[in-house]
Design a binder for these strands. Structure first.
Lengths: 233, 233
DNA sequence: CTATAATGTGACTGCCCAGTCATATGACTG
DNA sequence: CAGTCATATGACTGGGCAGTCACATTATAG
């Protein structure tokens, strides 16, 4: 953990340091990320950095935990309208909110992505734990879906968890690359992306998952013009 | 490109250098990968390295192209039994062969993964080109699927390409992590993984894709015991 | 104001790096 | 044999790095 001096810093200075550090660790390996660069860009002395953090590793862990924490907080701040809703409506919400987060703080997203999928410079249980918790979350969602009757019980649960978690995790980066969005612009709120097209794409993704997961004799919720099994209102 | 001296090297020495270099670039960012480490581990002098390659970048590009080339060759060496087969049978074959490759040369896979999804240290058209070709390949497959009637034409093609390509790309690494396989053991052919479970998982993945992509009034090829629409033989 | 504690500083250490180059070794030619 | 060319070598250069430390500055307390 950072030292108390770091948390005593005026908020603006603390945020600047974090911003610069996130930028550094978002774009580079742990080994390549440079404390010298961070202090230079944040306009503080090398020595000061070591008043705030034990060492490079300390900062790194803090950033990774920050990423997990911020995402959790963000989701909590935008709760689903109805916790009892159908699984696929829930997934739609989760994807929407997740993408809003990813598109507003893409660099934190990269820090997390690197830590989970690219490198674990310290072997590290913490990351294992964060990742496991995320997977368990998806698993419990899907299990609820099975119980609700929204997910075909014949589907292999491990595979379903893999598919949903990876697609959700990849989708943000895919979008950013596809639309050639600049991470800096996104963070500053300057990026002009077409919300309409994007929610369209999310719809396609959810629709695909629904086709893949819902039991066969299904109510075709996705083509409301098609003959369904629901009674007319 | 490497210099002619590199290709004139006795095969064994050349392969050792490549092996060590792949290991280095598989585990680290371009910036962190160390020529000094490579030459030390390969038992050659620093100066010799620069007889073989222009510079670090030269080696890096060569490795990335090698990865693409090797994968292409591997696929060509294991052609599908029937090029006219149903899309999902074709995808099953593609996944099977792709995974065989990924599990026998996981480090090359990592080099490619880093180059495509993690970092482009040189802006680089080459990588764009490789990636685009892969995506176009998936796209043409899926388009053929639509023409065959195996893929619902209502499905958004971009989304389908995204889903199939990412899941196929992620599946190998997922498997390796899940089964805690050691990359070194895999490369040496020492890893004991249970082929049975793995092909089971592949079946689950293909089955999911089929559910998600095939048109609705579908012949249920995946649960042959379920009532289908085919006439009894 | 003075004394003490907390915070800020940047020159410095030892280390590793990519890339160079003068020199050495070997291989082939006449 | 001598001469020429290709290849091998490792000490060396300049630069970046994480982390340290003696000292400077600022805040707090008595």
């Amino acid at each position: 953990m950072p030292k108390s001096t770091f948390f005593n810093l005026p908020e603006e200075k603390r945020n600047l340091i974090l911003e610069v550090a996130i930028d550094e660790f978002a774009g580079k390996d742990y080994d390549s990320a440079s404390i010298s660069q961070i202090v230079a860009r944040a306009g503080i002395a090398k020595g000061s950095f070591y008043q705030y953090f034990e060492d490079k590793r300390d900062l790194y862990f803090y950033l990774v935990e920050l990423a997990a924490e911020e995402k959790k907080r963000f989701l909590a701040r935008h709760p689903p309208p109805d916790p009892e809703m159908d699984l696929f409506d829930y997934l739609r919400w989760l994807l929407r909110i997740g993408m809003t987060f990813e598109l507003s703080q893409p660099k934190l997203g990269w820090v997390a992505f690197r830590a989970i999928y690219v490198e674990r410079p310290f072997g590290d249980d913490v990351l294992d734990h964060v990742q496991r918790r995320a997977l368990d979350y998806y698993r419990s969602l899907l299990q609820m879906g099975v119980d609700q009757g929204s997910v075909d019980p014949e589907i292999d649960m491990d595979m379903a968890v893999f598919i949903v978690s990876r697609l959700f995790a990849e989708y943000g980066r895919h979008l950013i690359e596809r639309e050639q969005l600049s991470l800096d612009d996104l963070e500053r709120g300057n990026a002009a992306y077409r919300d309409l097209d994007i929610t369209d794409m999310e719809e396609h993704l959810i629709s695909f998952l629904e086709r893949g997961l819902r039991p066969y004799p299904r109510t075709n919720r996705l083509r409301p013009d098609a003959p369904g099994q629901e009674p007319a209102p």
